[in-house]
Design a protein around this nucleic acid. Structure first.
Length: 918
RNA sequence: GCGGGCGUGGCGAAAUAGGCAGACGCGCCGGCUUUAGGUGCCGGUGAGGAAACUCGUGGGGGUUCGAGUCCCUCCGCCCGCACCA
C-alpha cells in the first residue's frame, strides 16, 4: 500500500532539480553493514583485559528490557529500543563508555506450545526466532553491542544460574516446602502469586486452582524490609512503580494475639494445639470481638476436618470456589462453625465461637482473625448473615454512646473507646498501644509487623526452562547437585506428543547417582520460573563470556544500570524479583556492593491503534485491510476487498487478538528505519501512549526528504560560491519569515543548549520539535540587504552540520549519509557532541509584553536586559497603551526584566465611562 | 473501596522559577507548480466580532499586579491493587 506513495516521491524528486534522491533502502543497508563490520573488527576482549587497556572514562549502562524471542518484533519493541538507542548514541557522542547490549529471554512456554503444534524442538524454534528477530532489530539501526549478545536458554548462561541456586540453598535463601500453590490447568504448571491476575493465569487466562505440592521457594520475604525502605532512595524511578511495589510488599503493623483453645464440646481435642494465633492491626477493638475466624486452609482447620465431615465438605467447597469468582466484593461470604470455643484474652469469662470462613486468607497474617463486626465491614457482613452479635466499642466523634448503633455499615474510623474496660475513654491510637501492652503483660500477644509479600515459588513443571540442580535420593532426601557437574543440561531427546512435563518422561535423563551415598537417585524434573533468568541477565551483560564466574569484579564497574527502559507491566514481577535477586547475590558474594540494580527506570507508554470490525460479522480486521473514505465520506470505512462496511473502534494497545497491529517490518521496508524512528519519537512524550497513524508516518517520511533537499541546496550553494553569482542562494521566494545569519547562529546555539537537556531528560518529543524548528530556520535564512550570500551560505552550512550532529541519535542512517555528502570529517558516530556558546545563544533583542492591569495591550522590541526606566518609558509611548490608559492615573508599574511591563491604574477606562463619553 | 496519574485547538502536543497560552507536527482551507495528484513549494488556521475588543487551558471558588502553572472544592477519564484482618 505504501509503495504507491513512495514511487511518487521518487518521481517527483527525479523530476526536480535534485541531483540525488533519498533512497532509504540503499543508505540504511550501507550504514548497518558498516556498523556491524566495525563491531566485528573490534575483537571482544574480556572485561579484565579491557579494564587494563582502557583509560577510565565515565560510564553509562543503558538497557531496555530484553525481548522474548517470539519470532517477530512488534511496535512496542520498536518504541522501546528506539528510546534506548537515542540515549546510547547520545552518551557515546558525549564521550561516555556506553554499555548497550541485547539478549533474549529465551526460555518459556510458547516454545513448548510451538513444539507441540509443529513437532519442532523448542531449541530449534527459539534459535530460528532469535535469528529472525536479530535481523529485524539490526534493520532498525540500533547501536547495540552484539558481541555481548546472550540467550538465557544457553547452558553457558544457565550454568551460572544453577550455581547461584546452590549458593542460595547454602545461605538458606532457597528452600523446599509443601505448600498451597496456584495451579494453571491449561499450562499444567504452578504459577507464582504475581502471575495470577483476577484468579486467572496471566498467560493462559484459565481459572487457577489451588493445589498442595512440594515446591522450591526463594526467601524474598527475608528482604521485605530492605526492598521497601530502599524504594525511597530510587529517585529516578516513576512514583507509580514505587507505589505499586510498596503496595505489593504490603507492610502492616499490628499485633499478634494468642487465643486459648477451650475444650468446649465433646470433640477429641487432646491432639489440638493449646492456642490459636491471630493478627490484627486494630487490637483496640478487642473487646468488640464477637467471634473468631480462620481460613479453610488453616492447619487447625485441616486437623479438625479429619474428624469433622461437615467441615471437610466445606473446605472442599471453599477451595474449588476460591478462584471461580474473581470479583472479591461480589463474593458472598460463607462459613461454618468449627465447634471450637476460644477464650477472650482479656476477659476470661467470655468465650468466642471459632468459624471457618472463606473470606479469611491463609496467605496473609496467621490465617486467622478475631472478628469485630462493629468496626470491620467484612466481619459485619458475615455477622449479619449468621446472626452473630455486633458490639460497638469505638465511638465516632460527635456521637452519643447511648444511641450509637451499627446498622449495615461498620465504623472503621477513629474515635473514643467504649464498653472496653480499661481502654474506655482512650483514643484509638492510645488504645492500640495500651491493648498491645496489656496483652504482652499477660503473655498473650506482642507487637508484630506482617507483610503481604510471599516467598517466591520458582518451580515450574515444564521442559523449556533451567533445570533445578538437585537430586532426590531415597536415603538422603534432597541433595544439591555437585558444582562440578554443572550445568545440568536439558535433555535433547524428549517427546512433546503428550501434555504434561516431558522431563518426567525422560527416564534416562532422570536417572543419576546420589552424590552423597552413591546409590540410585533421580534428578528434579522441575525447571525454574523464567523470571529467575531475567532477574540477573543485566549483570551477565557486563561479562557475558566469562565461563568461570557469572560476573567478574572488574566487570561490575558497569553497574548499576543507569537507565532501564521498559513497559509498566513489569512494575512488580520482574522489577521486584530483580531487586531481590541482586541483594541475594550480594549476600552470596557474587556481587560486591551493588544493591539496587536499576538506578533509573523509565516506563514507556503503549503503542495504540484504532480497531476495525466488520459491521455484520464483528470480526476484527487489520488496518491494512481497511479503506478510509475521503472528503464527504471521511468517517466511513470499508473492507478494501469486499467493500463491506467496517466500524472503527476506539484506539487500544496493539494486540494480535484485535488485529490492530502494524508490522514494523513493512514500515521499515516501505519507509525506512529512520522514518519509523522519527515517527516513534516525534509527537508523544515517551511515557505516554502513542497513537500510531498512517498520516504520522507519512509526515515523518516527508521530513526525511526535506532534510535531504536542504543538504542538496547547501551543497549547491557551496559549489557556486566561487563565481560570485547569487545562483547558489535561492532567491527570496514568497517566504514571510526571513532569518539573518546572525539569527540563525543564535538559533543553532539555542538548539544545542535545549536539545542536550531534552535528551538527558528523555523529552525526545521536545527535542524533535526543536530540531524541526532549526531545520525551518535553516531554510528561512536568506540573503538580505544586510547579509551577503557568502555569509548566509557559511552560516547555513554551520547550522546544518550542527543539525545533523544533533539529529544523529534519532535518525542515524540519513544523518551519516548527509554528513558524508557535505564532506564532514570522520563519521558522525566519531564526532563529539557540539557545545554551545552562552554568549551566542543569548538573545540581543527581546519582545516585552505591555499590560494594563494584567491585560495584554502591546508588545515592544527592546535590547535584552534593558533597564526598567527605559522599558517603562517606551511602554507608555505605545499607541494602544495611550489609548487604553485614557485619563486613568497610574498606581504602580511592575517590571519583570525581558518579560513584561504591567501598568497598574486606579481605574482603567471602563466601558461604562466610554459609553458616557459617547 | 484504597493507591497513582491525567484533563490545554478538529487531533498529537508545547509553555525555565507564577509573566505574550497553543512552539513543533498532523489534519483542514487557499494559492502556485503539475496532463493528473493521497506529490512538492508558499501562505492561512483557538472561538466570537466589521473593528476596537471580548472570551478561552474539565466546572466553581481563592491567593496574586498577573494563574495552564500555587491553594481549596467538585466533575470526568485512564491505570494499578483489591475479602490484606
Amino acid at each position: 500500500m505504501q509503495n504507491y506513495n513512495n514511487k511518487n516521491l521518487k518521481e517527483n524528486l527525479n523530476a526536480g532539480e535534485c541531483n540525488t534522491r533519498y533512497e532509504h533502502r540503499v543508505i540504511e543497508k550501507k550504514w548497518q553493514q558498516r556498523w556491524l563490520k566495525e563491531q566485528a573488527q573490534q575483537k571482544h576482549s574480556s572485561e579484565v583485559e579491557q579494564s587494563e587497556q582502557k583509560p577510565k572514562r565515565k560510564k553509562k549502562y543503558i538497557l531496555e528490557m530484553f525481548p522474548y524471542p517470539s519470532g517477530n518484533i512488534h511496535m512496542g519493541h520498536v518504541r522501546n529500543y528506539t528510546l534506548g538507542d537515542v540515549l546510547a548514541r547520545f552518551y557515546r557522542a558525549n564521550n561516555f563508555d556506553v554499555l548497550h547490549p541485547m539478549g533474549w529471554d529465551a526460555f518459556g512456554l510458547p516454545a513448548e506450545n510451538a513444539a507441540l503444534e509443529h513437532q519442532e524442538h523448542p531449541k530449534t524454534w527459539t534459535k530460528n526466532n532469535i535469528d529472525a528477530m536479530r535481523k529485524q532489530l539490526q534493520s532498525m539501526g540500533l547501536d547495540i553491542d552484539w558481541t555481548r549478545e546472550i540467550a538465557t536458554c544457553n547452558p553457558k548462561y544457565y550454568k551460572h544460574e544453577q550455581n547461584m541456586f546452590l549458593d542460595l540453598l547454602e545461605k538458606g535463601l532457597a528452600y523446599r516446602k509443601k505448600a498451597w500453590v496456584n495451579w494453571d490447568p491449561s499450562e499444567n504448571s504452578v504459577l507464582a502469586n504475581e502471575q495470577v491476575i483476577d484468579g486467572k493465569g496471566w498467560r493462559s487466562g484459565a481459572i487457577v486452582e489451588k493445589r498442595k505440592l512440594a515446591q522450591w521457594f526463594f526467601r524474598i520475604t527475608q528482604f521485605a524490609p530492605q526492598l521497601l525502605a530502599a524504594l525511597d532512595g530510587l529517585e529516578k524511578w516513576p512514583e507509580k512503580v514505587k507505589t505499586m511495589q510498596r503496595n505489593w510488599i504490603g507492610k502492616s503493623q499490628g499485633c499478634l494475639i494468642r487465643f486459648n483453645i477451650k475444650k468446649q464440646q465433646s470433640e477429641k481435642v487432646e491432639t489440638l494445639p493449646k492456642t490459636l494465633e491471630v493478627f490484627s492491626t486494630r487490637p483496640d477493638t478487642i473487646f468488640g470481638a464477637t467471634f473468631c475466624a480462620m481460613s479453610p486452609n488453616h492447619p487447625l482447620c485441616e486437623k479438625l476436618a479429619e474428624t469433622n465431615e461437615e467441615l471437610a465438605e466445606y473446605v472442599k467447597q471453599a477451595n474449588s470456589k476460591a478462584n471461580a469468582q474473581n470479583n472479591a466484593e461480589d463474593k458472598e461470604k460463607s462459613g461454618v462453625d468449627s465447634k471450637i470455643r476460644l477464650e477472650h484474652p482479656l476477659d476470661k469469662n467470655t468465650l468466642l465461637p471459632l468459624f471457618v470462613c472463606d473470606y479469611v486468607l491463609m496467605e496473609y497474617g496467621t490465617g486467622a482473625i478475631f472478628a469485630c463486626p462493629a468496626h470491620d465491614q467484612r466481619d459485619l457482613d458475615f455477622a449479619r448473615k449468621y446472626k452473630l452479635d455486633v458490639k460497638p466499642v469505638v465511638l465516632p466523634k460527635g456521637k452519643d454512646s447511648t444511641t450509637f448503633a451499627i446498622t449495615d455499615t461498620a465504623w472503621v474510623g477513629d474515635g473514643t473507646m467504649i464498653h472496653s474496660k480499661f481502654l474506655d475513654g482512650l483514643t484509638t491510637e492510645k488504645a492500640i498501644t495500651r491493648a498491645i501492652q496489656k496483652l504482652q503483660e499477660n503473655g498473650l500477644g506482642e507487637k508484630k509487623t506482617t507483610w503481604r509479600l510471599r516467598d517466591w515459588g520458582v518451580s515450574r513443571q515444564r521442559y523449556w526452562g533451567c533445570p533445578i540442580p538437585v537430586i532426590h535420593c531415597k536415603k538422603c532426601g534432597v541433595v544439591p547437585a555437585p558444582r562440578e557437574t554443572l550445568p545440568i543440561k536439558l535433555p535433547q531427546d524428549v517427546s512433546f506428543d503428550k501434555p504434561g512435563n516431558p522431563l518426567e518422561r525422560a527416564k534416562e535423563w532422570r536417572k543419576t547417582k546420589c552424590p552423597s551415598c552413591k546409590s540410585e537417585a533421580e534428578r528434579d524434573t522441575d525447571t525454574f520460573d523464567t523470571f529467575v533468568e531475567s532477574s540477573w541477565y543485566f549483570l551477565r551483560f557486563c561479562d557475558p563470556r566469562n565461563e568461570k564466574q557469572a560476573i567478574a569484579k572488574q566487570a561490575q564497574r558497569w553497574l548499576p544500570v543507569d537507565q532501564y527502559i521498559g513497559g509498566v507491566e513489569h512494575a512488580i514481577l520482574h522489577l521486584l524479583y530483580a531487586r531481590f535477586f541482586t541483594r541475594a547475590l550480594v549476600e552470596c558474594g557474587h556481587l560486591t556492593e551493588i544493591v539496587e540494580p536499576f538506578e533509573g527506570l523509565f516506563t514507556q507508554g503503549m503503542v495504540c491503534h484504532a480497531t476495525y470490525q466488520d459491521e455484520k460479522s464483528k470480526k476484527f480486521l487489520f488496518p491494512h485491510q481497511v479503506k478510509h473514505g475521503r472528503g464527504a465520506q471521511k468517517n466511513t470505512y470499508t473492507d478494501k476487498i469486499t467493500g463491506a462496511k467496517v466500524i472503527r473502534g476506539r484506539s487500544e494497545k496493539m494486540s494480535k487478538s484485535k488485529k490492530n497491529i502494524v508490522d514494523p517490518k513493512s514500515v521499515i521496508t516501505n519507509y525506512g528505519a529512520d522514518t519509523a524512528r522519527m515517527f516513534m519519537l516525534s509527537d508523544s512524550p515517551p511515557e505516554r501512549d502513542l497513537e500510531w497513524s498512517g498520516d504520522g508516518i507519512k509526515g515523518a517520511a516527508k521530513f526525511m526528504h526535506r532534510l535531504w533537499r536542504i543538504a542538496e541546496d547547501i551543497n549547491k550553494e557551496k559549489k557556486t560560491q566561487g563565481n560570485k553569482s547569487k545562483d547558489g542562494i535561492q532567491e527570496n521566494d514568497e517566504r514571510t519569515k526571513i532569518l539573518s545569519p546572525n539569527e540563525l547562529q543564535r538559533a543553532t546555539h539555542q538548539a544545542i543548549r535545549d536539545i542536550t537537556i531534552d535528551i538527558e531528560q528523555l523529552r525526545f518529543n521536545r527535542a524533535i520539535a526543536k530540531l524541526r524548528s532549526l531545520s525551518n530556520d535553516i531554510e528561512d535564512c536568506q540573503k538580505t540587504s544586510i547579509a551577503t550570500s557568502t555569509e548566509v551560505q557559511k552560516q547555513r552550512e554551520v547550522a546544518f552540520a550542527c543539525l545533523l550532529r544533533l539529529f544523529n541519535p534519532f535518525i542515524p542512517h540519513i544523518t551519516e549519509e548527509l554528513w558524508q555528502k557535505i564532506d564532514g570529517e570522520n563519521t558522525l558516530a566519531e564526532t563529539t557532541w557540539p557545545s554551545f556558546d552562552e554568549e551566542k545563544a543569548s538573545e540581543q533583542e527581546v519582545v516585552l509584553a505591555v499590560q494594563i492591569n494584567g491585560k495584554m495591550r502591546a508588545a515592544m522590541r527592546l535590547p535584552a536586559n534593558c533597564e526598567q526606566t527605559i522599558a517603562e518609558k517606551k511602554a507608555l509611548q505605545q499607541d494602544n497603551v495611550q489609548r487604553n490608559l485614557g485619563e486613568a492615573s497610574i498606581k504602580k508599574i511592575i517590571f519583570v526584566p525581558n518579560k513584561i511591563v504591567n501598568i497598574i491604574v486606579e481605574r482603567e477606562k471602563t466601558s461604562e465611562t466610554a459609553a458616557k463619553a459617547s
